[in-house]
């Protein structure tokens, strides 16, 4: 067994953590937009699955990873539109329509994979991109600045999203619609329009999350490849108190625990594997239990807006 407290091991844990956190960040930050506008989208995992498939299939056919990413975003947008039509325009229960979307994504991606691809195949996805000079910084340089472009984008997304939500008129409108849609409506804000936009932003980012799995991390598609990561992303929004920075904290905590338990096993630490794989989930439940600030929850979350009735 090697020294588990060495710099090399710590660097390995942190680098794996960044990679694992990437799909969570895209999906959970996106879901933050949706939930701040008042719409809980439980279909994130289904959107990730369908986008993951289309990104993979596009790269398989064309070899173009950027086109694969674009297709994933478009698929996410279309799924977001479907969610919006059902839950915003037709006022269906958000939980039910979200679950429907998840099942649709799971079933359709599986069907398309079977019909169009037939068997498991790998593709060449995004490769690590070393940023000159920054990657030469001792210790932190190789960890932070030798990753795929999607890892950089995921972490860049956090301050950008925070800025949009906290410092722009659009962010103010999104939060106003999520807190008090009637008041927002009375000052001329299109509640449905803002909710459509927020759900579509969230779904497009869920699409990128799916692509990050199939053409950046795993470089293949397999039935149910997300293994429920979309649901964890939804939980991270609550965990993070509906703030992109809080969401990032949750994503890093969960990913760190996952990365650490893998490293403990790889280094031969004498801990039962079945116990090790539970560590991230136990830690998440504990932190979620003690830290969630329900006061931050959008007041109109999961509530349909009926003009003149709210």
């Amino acid at each position: 067994m090697r020294d588990i407290f060495s710099f090399n091991v710590l660097a390995g844990v942190l680098q794996t953590m960044l990679s694992l956190a990437t799909p969570f960040l895209f999906a959970a930050v996106g879901e933050t937009f949706s939930q701040l506008s008042g719409v809980v989208n439980l279909g994130v995992d289904g959107i990730m699955l369908l986008s993951a498939f289309f990104a993979f299939y596009t790269v398989l056919l064309t070899g173009n990873i950027w086109l694969g990413l674009l297709v994933a975003i478009i698929v996410g947008l279309l799924m977001g539109l479907l969610m919006s039509v059902v839950s915003v325009t037709f006022k269906a229960q958000q939980g039910i329509s979200g679950i429907g979307l998840q099942i649709l994504g799971l079933g359709l991606s599986s069907l398309l994979f079977k019909v169009l691809v037939g068997t498991v195949r790998t593709v060449s996805g995004f490769r690590r991109m070393r940023i000159p000079l920054l990657a030469d910084i001792p210790f932190l340089g190789p960890i932070l600045f030798n990753n795929t472009v999607l890892v950089y984008a995921a972490f860049l997304l956090v301050p950008v999203s925070w800025f949009i939500l906290e410092r722009t008129t659009l962010g103010l409108k999104i939060k106003a619609v999520g807190q008090n849609p009637s008041a927002a409506d009375s000052v001329g804000i299109s509640v449905n329009g803002i909710r459509y936009l927020s759900v579509c932003i969230g779904s497009a980012l869920a699409g990128v999350a799916g692509a990050s799995i199939s053409i950046s991390i795993s470089n293949l598609f397999q039935d149910n490849i997300t293994a429920g990561q979309g649901f964890i992303a939804v939980a991270l929004v609550y965990f993070g108190g509906w703030s992109p920075i809080g969401v990032m904290g949750g994503a890093l905590l969960f990913s760190f625990a996952t990365s650490a338990q893998i490293w403990l096993q790889v280094l031969g630490v004498d801990i039962p594997a079945s116990l090790a794989v539970m560590i991230p989930y136990i830690l998440t439940i504990v932190v979620l239990t003690v830290s969630v600030n329900r006061g931050k929850q959008p007041a109109a979350l999961n509530k349909q807006f009926f003009r003149g009735e709210n």
Binding site: G12, T16, S19, L20, I213, I217, S218, L220, Q222, N224, I225, T226, A227, Q229, T258, S259, I262, W263, Q265, V266, A273, S274, A276, V277, M278
Partner: peptide, 18 residues
């Protein structure tokens, strides 16, 4: 390393990377 799942491709990917 063991992922604790026969089907979790993402966990297996992370294990291989490690």
């Amino acid at each position: 390393s063991w992922t604790g799942s026969f089907s979790d491709v993402a966990a297996m990917t992370a294990a291989a990377s490690t």
